[in-house]
Amino acid sequence: MTSIPADQYVTDTSTDITEYWIDLFLGIKGNEYFCDIDDDYIRDRFNLTGLAQEVSHLSLLVDLITDAIDMDNDDRSDENRKNTEHDARVLYGLIHARYILTLRGLTKMFDKFRTGDFGFCPRVNCELHPLLPVGLSDQPRVASVKLYCAKCEDFYNPKSNRHAVVDGAYFGRSFPAMFLLNYQQAIPVHSKQTYVPRLFGFKLHEYSKLDRWRQLQRLKLEDRLRKDNVEIDDVQGGFETSKKESQGP
């Protein structure tokens, strides 16, 4: 048992990993933002409505993702197999965008959000608030995935280059909105702090003026919301919408 030839050992592990297509996919570097999709969600044809336009051989790909067929025993050419594998990844991404809007998908993404799998906001005043993935378009091949910070309500580029090639459509334009609608406890306290450049301690006038105008917009917003019976609480570190009474359209 102790003297296993090196090549045999390698083939051994590779067959081990390919046992589940989804696990293999999630293990690829750069795919850290994805969560795993339940088999029955993928098999339900209703959830795949319209995706046949994006990829060809939909049924084959579904079988591949759910491990109903084994590609290794297939008699296709290498080129063909490579294309099929690529299409399967695209399909998985597009199903993923739909899945994370469902209750089960949201729960899985909430766990990932809590552990900071999507990274943290680089803005100083956000104090490392965890980010959420978002696409700028629901159409594939438009823009790569971006990250949304719920604290400053802004979009950021992922820190690592390997995430810059992940398609934003695999997460969708709606995900953060749906996420925050469902997990109101995840809505953070918004910081009022802003940065104004200084020269030897004195604020630069132009920037200071703009900052004052922005603060004015904030005060007007708070005023407007209070008139609409939305309570805004001043809390330590900023302000938040009062969570006692949940209302909204």
Binding site: Q184, W213, L221, D228, T241, K243
Partner: peptide
């Protein structure tokens, strides 16, 4: 998202011009 919603926009002023 409507402003009056719990998850509505709150810090649009931060980047306003």
């Amino acid at each position: 998202i409507n402003e009056k919603s719990m998850s509505g926009p709150r810090v649009k002023w931060l980047r306003a011009v």
